[in-house]
Structure formats: structure tokens, C-alpha cells
Simulated scan of single mutants.
Amino acid sequence: MVPPVAIDIDGTMTTPDGGIDPQLFQALQDWPEPVVVATGKAFPYPVALCEFLGLPTRVVAENGGVACTEDSLAILGNGEAARNAVSEFESEGHDIQRGENDLHNRWRETEVSVATSVAFSTLSEFAEKHGQTVVDTGYSYHVKSPELSKADGLAYVAEELGRKPDDFVAVGDSENDTEMFRACKHSFAVSNADAAAEAAADEVTDASFAAGTTEALETLR
């Protein structure tokens, strides 16, 4: 019997160019157990992904800050401290380099996304002053609470589905997946994963990006 799965987006469902890889569409649509999309992206992005793929809305967003199923929604984090840290960072003459429209943060509720071109150590100093941490996903720096992770969001979704986190198998590529890996009964890091994800995973796929996720799903069937 195949398990329910929790799958990251960036670097895990995507091609090296950043788009969602169509090779995953049918596999996810046909998966007989729950599929949870678990990402650092702001809440609307994974919800839209589920809708366009025809999947039930089972989402962990903002690194565990927001979680939902078809029938429930929980804001598990509070973004005030992260926003205060970034506001002070900017008031000291620094720029988070997200542009005027800032679509990365416009709908973000529990953390702040900062471009990876910003000095990590400087940003971390401001975050720590406000009790926050900075997580580098390889795509963004996330200023967030150190007390929340994707594992917390998955715990919420799993309970809503009548499951437990350790019923799930996780697939991811970054340090923000490590807590989720440890919470699940088994985990795969795709071969493009960072060192933290590789160290935390039970297995590392031979293939990278979405091809690695396809490999993991085929292993589970």
C-alpha cells in the first residue's frame, strides 16, 4: 500500500529552470493517498498549484506558518516579529531586494522572504534581535520564527486528515525540509538537495529536481 506524501515545490517539483515539471502531473493526480504540498512559498501559491493540478487542497505554506485542508485553515505563525526585524533592517539602509511590487511577500502572513543577494550574516543579526531566525532555502532567505517548521504544518494537516505525520513520506531539497523529514516515517532528498537535506533524508535519489521526485514516487509504488 502506498503512503501519503508531503512534497516540497521549489527544487523538488520543478525543473532546473524553475517551472513545475509536467512529468509529475499524472503521478500526483493518480496518487491514491493524500498528497500534501509543503513549501516555503506564500499561501496562495501552493493553493493555486493544487487547484490547477486538480488535487485536493492540502497545503503547508510559509515553512509551516500556514496550513490548510479542503475544510480547514490554520495560521500557525505570527509574522509581526519577522516584519519588525526586516523593517529595522531596511531602516538601517539595507534593501531586501524584492522590488516595488514584491510579489514574494504581498500575501505572506507569518514570515518575510528576502532575496539571497542580501548579506546573510547582516540579515541574521537583525533577525536574532527580534527572536527570529533566517533559513536559506537556496531560493530565498526566510525570516521566520525558530519555533515553526514544515513539520508543524504537516502535523496540523495530518490530524485534519485523520493521520499522523509518521504515516507520510516526505520529498524535498533544502534545509527547510529537514524537520519534516524527521517527522515522517521515510524521506527522500532529490540529488540537487543541499547538504542539510541530504544529511537528514533517509534516501537520496539518483535523479535531480522533479525527476528525482518521480523516482521517489516510483520507488514507493
Rank of each mutant, 00 (worst) to 15 (best):
I9R: 08
D10G: 04
D10F: 03
M13G: 13
M13E: 10
T14A: 09
T15L: 13
T15P: 00
P16Y: 01
P16E: 09
G18Y: 02
G18F: 02
I20C: 00
D21G: 05
D21Q: 07
D21K: 07
P22W: 00
P22A: 05
Q23L: 14
L24T: 11
F25E: 12
F25P: 00
F25K: 12
Q26I: 02
A27I: 11
Q29L: 11
D30Y: 07
D30N: 13
W31C: 06
W31I: 00
W31V: 00
V35R: 10
A38E: 04
A38W: 01
T39W: 07
K41F: 00
K41P: 06
A42E: 11
A42Y: 01
F43G: 13
F43V: 04
F43M: 14
F43P: 06
P44D: 07
P44Y: 04
P44M: 04
Y45F: 13
Y45E: 13
P46Y: 00
V47P: 06
V47W: 06
A48E: 14
A48T: 15
A48D: 14
A48V: 14
L49K: 03
L49T: 06
C50A: 12
C50D: 02
C50K: 02
E51Q: 15
F52D: 13
F52H: 12
L53F: 14
L53S: 07
T57Y: 10
T57P: 11
R58S: 08
R58I: 03
R58H: 15
R58E: 10
R58K: 12
V59D: 07
V59S: 08
V59T: 06
V60P: 05
A61N: 04
E62A: 11
N63L: 02
G64E: 04
V66F: 10
A67G: 09
A67Y: 03
A67I: 07
C68W: 01
T69E: 09
E70I: 00
D71A: 11
D71S: 14
S72W: 08
L73W: 09
L73G: 02
A74H: 09
I75R: 14
I75F: 12
N78M: 03
N78Q: 10
G79A: 10
E80P: 00
A81I: 00
A81G: 08
A82D: 10
A82W: 01
R83L: 06
A85S: 12
A85G: 08
V86Y: 07
S87E: 15
E88R: 13
E88D: 13
F89W: 05
E90S: 12
E90L: 04
E90V: 04
S91A: 15
E92W: 10
G93E: 08
G93P: 01
D95H: 06
I96A: 03
I96K: 08
R98V: 14
G99C: 05
G99D: 01
G99N: 03
E100M: 04
E100I: 03
E100K: 11
